[in-house]
């Protein structure tokens, strides 16, 4: 340890106090019952049908939402690049400005738009299309989740595409590549770091966004986040809640290991 690294002392103590110890606390609760006796029951509870179903739904929803975010974000980034919007300071600001309005209020407004007598069905009726009863459905919930996390995916991919040297794209064009080849052979492989950090930033929160599920699906759909929240707030079985949280954490770590060995650096740190 040299002298300069001592500067990190206060934060390392902080991390031990507020990241490592709480982490151990949750493990402790997960592995004991109300009487303090050691048990695996809280972890195995994940395999009870209710919990298993919530977990399956969560993974499904998170998977589809992540894929939709990717499919929406890439064309946007490419369109922005086409129109020369890269490197302009307002580009990113326009994307993250909505974050300054509380997300619950934004979701409520989105719900108003999607509701049975809302703006969307109004437009549908003008266009002569049949109305869609979207409110309180799984589709509405997924629209809500995509709405929540799409900016993160866009910013992640944007940052990694911005790191690709224009010369490299021109070189590919020069060697005979058309727009599609340039995208699949050059831009996509070179923006994988941003894509991966985007996936981490969208997938994990999607699984646990219990507020979004409550608002957009009207409490009809239980994500794993809803179950955990209820164990702590309503049922007050902290041991069971901790057990499910630990399983969730393992899941998150596995998906992290699967997607990347690098920092989630591409997304948020470059916003400002």
């Amino acid at each position: 340890m040299n002298k300069r690294s001592l500067w990190s002392g206060p934060y390392i103590l902080w991390m031990i106090g507020f990241t490592v110890i709480p982490f151990c606390m949750i493990l402790h609760y997960a592995l004991t019952d109300r009487d303090g006796a050691f048990t695996f029951r809280n972890l195995l509870a994940m395999f009870e049908p209710v919990h298993l179903k919530a977990m399956t739904v969560s993974v499904e929803v998170a998977f589809f939402c992540t894929v939709i975010c990717i499919l929406l974000a890439y064309p946007l980034v490419i369109a922005m690049k086409r129109l020369g919007l890269f490197g302009k300071s307002y580009t990113i600001l326009v994307l993250i400005l909505p974050m300054w309005i509380n997300f619950i209020l934004r979701l409520l407004a989105l719900q108003m738009i999607l509701s049975n007598n809302g703006v969307l069905n109004h437009i549908f009726s003008i266009l002569g299309l049949p109305p869609h009863e979207l409110a309180n459905t799984r589709t509405a919930m997924m629209i809500g989740i995509v709405y929540d996390y799409l900016p993160y995916m866009i910013v992640s991919i944007y940052n990694s595409v911005a790191d690709i040297d224009d010369d490299i794209i021109e070189a590919a064009r020069d060697l005979g590549a058309g727009s599609l080849t340039v995208f699949f052979r050059i831009i996509l492989p070179l923006s994988v770091p941003g894509l991966l950090s985007g996936i981490v930033m969208v997938f994990v929160p999607s699984m646990t966004s219990f507020v979004t599920a409550n608002i957009m699906a009207g409490g009809k759909i239980q994500l794993i986040g809803n179950i955990i929240e209820q164990e702590f707030i309503t049922t007050m079985d902290w041991h069971l809640g901790s057990g499910l949280s630990v399983i969730l954490m393992i899941f998150v770590l596995l998906s992290m290991a699967f997607t990347s060995r690098n920092d989630p650096d591409y997304g948020m740190s470059k916003i400002w």
Partner: peptide
């Protein structure tokens, strides 16, 4: 040590916020 510290540092960012909230609550209540 750089890698180890950065790994712990990343935990609050990659973990689900509900897990962060719960673990801190369990600890604070003590």
């Amino acid at each position: 040590s750089y890698k180890a510290v950065m790994a712990v540092n990343n935990i609050p960012m990659v973990n689900a916020d509900i897990v962060i909230g719960i673990s801190l609550m369990l600890w604070f209540i003590k």
